[in-house]
Design a binder for these strands. Structure first.
Lengths: 220, 220
DNA sequence: TACCAAATTTTGACATGTCAAAATATTACA
DNA sequence: TGTAATATTTTGACATGTCAAAATTTGGTA
């Protein structure tokens, strides 16, 4: 019914919508999906005619109920698959994003539910990203990042939002993954610099951009 | 590189080529894949230009080395996935063919090898179909079927070539699956009829067509 | 050997998704 | 408020895969 291309556009819009309620520009969608601007505009018309988004030319788009539900299901598939690949199949967390990108369009409801069952109906994926419920409801918890959290004391890593393989491999080498504890050794706004110490003792120097993608729970 | 459509055509030709060495007509391919005859012809030109088949108009097609290798890899993916779905995920053997039909185009080499490893480098899928090696070599063993095997004595089911879900469910209800033993209670050519008794004691009446799809190893 | 039926190929059309480049709208700023 | 820079949409083209229906080839048979 809905092509994998349509699913990709919906998922993209959904993810952007998660972080702000403003209408989303076609240019942003185009750059995220790495297609030409005109391509995104054309697809917006298609999605709009299918009732999956509302689209006001030059103003932007917004998912409808139907579009939102569909997108949530795609995202659910993606994240359950990621966790399955790590937990059941033993893949590295840095590899599973791109694998899931392919599989999310090919896995049936039956197989997905079986994965979900084998995983014990999990609520987060290997990166700490929340998994939408089977009904299509996503609960995003608000966490501070390494550039917004209070200094001093232990922090528990709960989520890493930058999914690029190289970055994840770097973090893993330093023992920085959801569930692990870290401490901020120094943070300097002017220098765009955060130095993190993981429980392995190693210090890791990060710029603000990557540091902002590491979400933590301040120690209790 | 090669689209999932191309993969489907190659796999189809490969499977037909497994059972005879004659050139394969475009009409047969079209009917197998449920596309219009002209569609198959168009694709034969494409495949031919890509060097995956040799194509003589009105005479038929044949896989090249390259095409054969590619097709074997697709079939390998299909059969490893089927076994994974049954052995690791607990799906019913009657459901996995259609699931694998989708997944075979989306599973990476990395994931496939991991499946293969988890399954202990298996040589046959849940239906007893042989799995091509990672190098793309397929070893088909010759087995008699319920309409060609000798009468009398126990027979071990080794393979079921009809993959339709309803038929497989029927067999399962009667305890007829690879590894199980059966006995031919009667076979009547004129009536197109075979009556099989499984170890559960139940008798199953089959026509010649379905009976021919059940391959057995005569008891030693 | 000529013709007919069946199979195959060709033709013209369409659907989906994509791009580059031209046209148009929006926004910011001078 | 007018204009320039930027973003968006439109246009025309292309690639892949598909169909229905017309044209062609093949092979058997009279």
């Amino acid at each position: 019914m809905t092509s994998s291309t349509v699913e990709d556009y919906l998922k993209c819009i959904y993810l952007i919508q998660t972080r702000s309620t403003d209408p989303i520009s076609t240019g942003l969608i185009a750059s995220q999906l790495k297609v030409a601007p005109g391509t995104a505009t054309a697809m917006m018309k298609t999605l709009s005619e299918s009732g999956l988004i509302t689209y006001e030319p030059y103003r932007g788009v917004r998912l409808t109920q139907a579009g939102s539900k569909l997108a949530a299901h795609v995202l659910r598939r993606h994240r359950v698959i990621e966790l399955f690949l790590v937990e059941v199949m033993g893949l590295n967390w840095s590899d599973v994003h791109s694998e899931a990108e392919l599989l999310e369009h090919a896995v049936s409801e039956l197989v997905l539910d079986r994965m979900d069952e084998m995983l014990g109906r999990p609520s987060v994926d290997p990166h700490g990203d929340p998994i939408p419920s089977p009904r299509g409801v996503l609960r995003e918890k608000e966490y501070p990042s390494l550039i917004s959290c209070p200094l001093g004391g232990l922090l528990k890593v709960v989520r890493v939002t930058d999914q690029s393989a190289n970055f994840l491999r770097l973090l893993e080498r330093h023992g920085i993954m959801p569930g692990k504890e870290v401490e901020i050794a120094s943070r300097e706004d002017a220098a765009d610099s955060v130095i993190v110490r993981s429980s392995s003792g190693k210090a890791l120097h990060l710029g603000f951009r990557p540091a902002a993608s590491i979400l933590v729970e301040p120690g209790e």
